[in-house]
Design a protein around this nucleic acid. Structure first.
Length: 596
RNA sequence: GGUCCCGUAGUUCAAUGGAUAGAAUAGAAGUUUCCUAAACUUUAGAUACAAGUUCGAUUCUUGUCGGGACUACCA
């Protein structure tokens, strides 16, 4: 149990004992004490002042007295400043903590809790290569899955591939028109880029045809609807739905190219899935639920035959769930897929990592599922993340400002190589080791950059100023890890444990203590990140840890400490710091090198 | 028009209603006979505006200004 939890409990108990007022420990506000004051943790008293009819000072005195006298081994001193009760935690507590955990490789991880959670992320379209926005999605999804695992959940990672529909047919038509039988292999192009290029070709040709028709005197709308290439595409969609063999074959072919391309990218960035769904298999799901909903009175039918749900009582609008021609709309298959996932995996929570432009869609989805009484309904959680924008605004394919995922990864790895070569610290590495190191650093920089920001908020990426390797970055943290590992190697590998753990008794110097305090909060940070679905909490935490360690390292000699006892303490602190950095970075999907 | 989100140092990001709003980077000034200087130390710099609630507001409420998303019988 963390010391913060202890303080909350003891405070609640004290208030109960002293004033006969029941208070949940969670209601006690405990902060880290500001550096300029004496103490380690601070209880904010204002919240209780009114209820207990005491002055903050008097209340603080009585609580402080009670806390210190009832737990003399844990809390050694207190002081009150302006309604804040500052408490000093005994050095022995931190020493014991370090001794207990320094060799625990899974420090921070919670035991299995029996809960199963699904995380759906990535969810690409097969007509476009992945871009910067997809990277944020993939890193977030992957990281949330790892954070949930670390908190004891069983996690099923899923991906839904948008592999059918009019947009796919556009690429197919363009390939028929302009491809001349070309393939990714014949053109030495990565499959997803290859197909994406034909999607672009379609749009160019479509635009050209529309202009041509307009020049012939047709109105805008008519020109857009009657452009031959568009008519051909619509026909192809009908053929696809009818299962016309040559269309299906072309579709399978082009999709297989895209999948090969995606797979290469996923391998590179470390995305993987336990189960992949394809819309070509799921787009008819949910139709039966419309009938169910109608008979339950959840849905209603309009005179033209279309089916709707009235969500005005929930502050939303009426929403169509089935067209008048009897075909389903997008949300119908989402409802059906939610039901199918439930049957297949029976998870208690289902997290959808999807951009915030679909906030409304997921609000509606959850409401409909709830009204239908689907068992999966309450577990639906939309992990909504903001767009990645450029300094000039949104990425626009029309203006060629889309930042391609593959290009960006390569660029980051190249920068990593360049900087590493400049520093010249790893000249004895083999070629394989160097390649691995450049990947580790380049991808580490990129992932950290995208994960260090609160997912809910949109963020800005400036391609001009490439991602930094100094300061609040992945490489800074990786460097700190490598540095610690170097110290530990020089100190003789494993930390000597000649003396029994309990005999490590010394007074902690300020930075030793600060490091210990910070390390001790790691499990709480992981739990918080899971509850909030927010990897940035871990990123910020690990960065601060690395920063504290670097100050500690500069201030104190580790291998040549002033006493054997100090040496052992610092080696253990170092080892635990390296482990926490490694575990923290791991849940962000970032590797840490032994040397760099 | 309606619904929702966002405005914090030059820039990119923090801050469960709590102490003097933290970092990073860019700027200025330093640190390497000694464990990795991708580091460390010092310095300067911000809550869009106006009311309100509160002992206390970046945080909650309202309004103004500015930016964005959604609002398809598209997927």
């Amino acid at each position: 149990m963390s010391v913060v939890t202890r303080i909350k409990e003891v405070t609640a108990a004290a208030i109960h004992q002293l004033y006969q007022v029941e208070l949940a420990p969670q209601e006690v506000l405990v902060n880290a004490t500001k550096p300029e004051f004496e103490g380690d943790y601070t209880v904010v008293l204002f919240a209780f002042v009114k209820q207990l009819k005491k002055s903050p000072d008097a209340l603080g005195q009585e609580l402080g007295q009670y806390i210190v006298t009832t737990h003399p081994q844990l809390f050694t001193a207190y002081n009150i400043i302006k309604g804040f009760l500052n408490i000093t935690v005994a050095d022995s507590y931190w020493l014991q903590f370090v001794n207990e955990q320094y060799s625990n490789v899974s420090f921070g991880h919670a035991p299995q809790n029996g809960q199963k959670v699904m995380v759906e992320y990535s969810s690409p379209n097969t007509n476009k290569p992945l871009h910067l926005g997809h990277l944020r999605n993939n890193f977030l999804g992957r990281s949330i899955a790892e954070i949930l695992k670390a908190n004891g959940n069983e996690v099923v990672k899923t991906c839904i591939v948008n592999d059918r529909g009019i947009h796919i047919c556009k690429s197919m038509i363009a390939w028929q028109l302009f491809g001349n039988g070309a393939t990714p292999a014949s053109t030495h192009t990565k499959g997803d880029h290859f197909v994406g290029d034909y999607y672009v070709k379609f749009n160019d040709e479509y635009k050209r045809q529309v202009e041509e028709l307009k020049a012939q005197g047709k109105l805008d709308e008519e020109a857009e609807k009657t452009a031959p290439i568009m008519l051909a595409t619509q026909q192809m969609l009908l053929d696809w739905e009818a299962g016309k063999p040559e269309v299906m074959e072309l579709w399978r072919n082009m999709n297989s190219w895209v999948y090969a391309g995606f797979e290469a990218t996923y391998q590179r960035i470390g995305s993987d899935f336990d189960k992949t769904y394809y819309e070509s298999n799921t787009y008819l799901l949910g139709k039966d639920l419309i009938e169910t909903g109608l008979s339950k009175g959840v849905f209603f039918q309009k005179p033209d035959g279309s089916v709707w749900i009235d969500l005005t009582a929930d502050g939303l609008d009426e929403k169509l769930v089935r067209r008048k021609d009897g075909t389903s709309v997008y949300i119908t298959q989402d409802i059906g897929l939610a039901e199918q996932k439930q049957k297949e995996f029976n998870a208690s929570q289902s997290i959808y990592v999807v951009g915030d432009e679909q906030n409304y869609h997921f609000k509606v989805l959850k409401l409909i599922c709830q009204k239908l009484g689907l068992p999966s309904a309450d577990g639906i959680y939309h992990l909504s993340y903001g767009m990645v924008e450029l300094p000039t605004g949104k990425m626009k394919s029309r203006e060629g400002t889309v930042v391609d995922a593959d290009d960006l990864v390569e660029e980051m790895v190249n920068i990593a190589r360049q900087k590493t070569e400049e520093l010249g610290k790893v000249k004895d590495f083999t070629t394989e080791e160097l390649t691995e190191l450049y990947d580790t650093i380049g991808l580490g920089a990129l992932k950290f950059f995208l994960l260090r920001v609160d997912p809910k908020k949109k963020m800005v990426f400036n391609p001009e100023e490439s991602i930094d390797f100094h300061g609040f970055t992945g490489p800074f943290i990786q460097y700190t890890h490598a540095r610690i590992k170097s110290i530990l190697r020089k100190a003789g590998g494993e930390v000597a444990v000649q003396t029994p753990n309990s005999s490590l008794q010394t007074t902690l110097l300020p930075l030793e203590k600060e490091l210990s305090i910070h390390l001790e909060t790691f499990p709480a940070v992981l739990a918080d990140a899971a509850n909030e679905h927010d990897p940035s909490k871990v990123a910020i935490y690990v960065f601060n840890l690395a920063k504290i360690f670097n100050s500690f390292y500069t201030e104190h000699s580790i291998g040549n400490a002033e006493s054997q006892e100090k040496k052992e303490l610092r080696l253990r602190l170092s080892r635990l710091t390296a482990q926490v950095i490694k575990n923290g970075m791991h849940v962000l999907g970032i590797k840490v090198p032994e040397r760099m």
